[in-house]
Amino acid sequence: MSNTDFVLAVEDLTVSFDGFKAIDNLNLYVDRGELRVIIGPNGAGKTTLLDLICGKTKASAGSIKFKNQEMTRLPEHMIVRAGIGRKFQTPSIYENLTVFKNLEVSYPRGRGVFGALCFKCDDAVQAKVDEVAGMIGLADCLDLEAGLLSHGQKQWLEIGMLLMQDPELLMLDEPIAGMSARERELTADLLNRICQNRSVIVIEHDMDFVARIAHKVTVMHQGKILAEGSMDKIRSDPRVIDVYLGH
């Protein structure tokens, strides 16, 4: 397929695990600056789709183009360096390191062995850590060991670690799972702020939360796309109500 203006263009993507097609001939296009939410029942293949985009799982067939560059054959760290950041479903942070170290180590400099040996935490790094810590509301906890943070704070810290790298595409897998109502609100604000100059894909179940953040919603079912469009359109789609919202 020819070049597009989309930041992400997924085409005819298929992956099968022992014959079971977890993703089945899927097409997905994400605009620059767009916040896309993917919903769907458990086992629909949402997490698998993110795994494929970030290279954790290799596609059986199809293409994933990020800014018109093919990603399917790149190793994971090169996909990250191209500008795709991914947050895991369970908070994945370095529990034994301080919040500051968690952020500092995510700064995109000194990524090779010898670069890391010579890495200095200079003013630029310090400023970026302060900026990101402010955004995720952890400016007062920089010296705290990350394992001592609350569940919600851990989720924010992981988002912060991704923001340190200024990715052009940020993918978040169920970022508000296990959060209190207040934390959900703060997260919605955070997501609305960070999609100002980047594209974001969020997987989420909570429809009120989805309504607060989504520019466009994609519904997945059995490895395929069932419906796509604005929140209102999705809410009134009979097929979506049937397989997902009806429960």
């Binding site: 760290h77 950041g85 991914r86 995109p108």
Partner: peptide
């Protein structure tokens, strides 16, 4: 040692 995947998906060749 703690979270190998997180390091890998932060752009490092683990």
């Amino acid at each position: 040692r703690d979270k190998e995947d997180r390091v890998r998906f932060s752009g490092y060749d683990v």
